[in-house]
Amino acid sequence: MNTETKKPSLYERLGGVYAIAAVVDTFIDRIMVAPELNANPLVDEAHHRVPKAGFKYLVTEMVCQVTGGPQRYTGKTMAESHKHLNISASEWVVFAGIFKAVLDEYKVPEAEQAELFAIVGSTRSDIVVERPVSKAG
């Protein structure tokens, strides 16, 4: 008899689609109005080009899929949807800080937060435009 129990998926540990959708709802509301992110005119324009409800739907789909849920993401790849936005490393840090604050607000345990940040971090190279460091002098 196998006494080993299967660990619940991250999706299950996060509480499933309803809990994920609630976090995404708050998170998108915050990033859409973050002055540090909207200082980038390309990001600001993108934030106003699509209805917020549709954006929240796609992000919820994506988070559910990558955490082991039954949903399938139907949007563009991260590279396709971000390559034209010229997102900087400092904007990424602001985005991550907002994400962390929302996860804390919803009392997502640290272990699950670490897994989520590993997933989000894996998309950084598709989102952030690295700029060469200029040397003065």
Rank of each mutant, 00 (worst) to 15 (best):
A136D: 02
I28H: 03
S81H: 05
E110C: 02
A22L: 14
T74P: 00
S9E: 09
A22C: 05
Y57Q: 08
N86V: 08
V93Q: 11
K6F: 08
I20G: 03
E80I: 06
G75S: 06
M62Q: 12
E61S: 13
S125R: 11
S122V: 02
L58N: 06
R131C: 01
E91R: 03
R72I: 15
E115F: 06
A89R: 12
D44V: 00
E105D: 10
A114L: 11
D126Y: 11
A111N: 11
I119F: 07
P35M: 08
I87K: 08
T26Y: 01
K135A: 14
E112T: 03
K100R: 12
Y18G: 13
S125G: 08
A111W: 01
G16H: 12
I31V: 15
W92F: 14
D126I: 02
I127W: 06
Y73L: 09
P41Q: 01
L116Q: 03
R72G: 10
S125T: 09
P109R: 08
A96R: 08
K56A: 05
I20R: 04
M78C: 06
W92Q: 05
D104F: 07
E112N: 15
T74G: 13
T77S: 15
A114H: 06
D44C: 10
A39F: 10
V102W: 03
I28D: 07
R30C: 07
V129N: 05
R131P: 01
A118I: 00
Q65T: 02
P70Y: 04
Q71L: 15
A21W: 01
R13T: 04
V24Y: 02
E105C: 03
L10I: 11
T77Q: 02
G68N: 06
M62K: 14
A79H: 11
V94D: 03
R124D: 04
H48Y: 03
E91G: 04
F95M: 13
A53I: 11
A21E: 12
D126K: 10
V50N: 10
C64H: 08
Y73R: 02
P109Y: 03
K83F: 15
E4I: 12
A89S: 12
E45Q: 13
V24A: 02
K52S: 11
R72F: 13
V120F: 13
D29T: 11
P132M: 09
P70V: 03
I20C: 03
I87G: 06
V50M: 01
C64Y: 15
K76R: 15
K100F: 03
V17L: 12
G97N: 12
S88A: 06
P51W: 00
V93P: 00
K52L: 10
K83V: 11
V133T: 11
E130Q: 08
R49N: 14
P41I: 02
G16Q: 10
L37V: 14
L103S: 09
E80Q: 15
K107H: 14
K83A: 13
P132T: 01
Q113M: 15
D29G: 13
V93F: 00
V23T: 10
P70F: 04
F99E: 07
S125P: 00
F55K: 01
I31S: 06
V128P: 03
V63D: 00
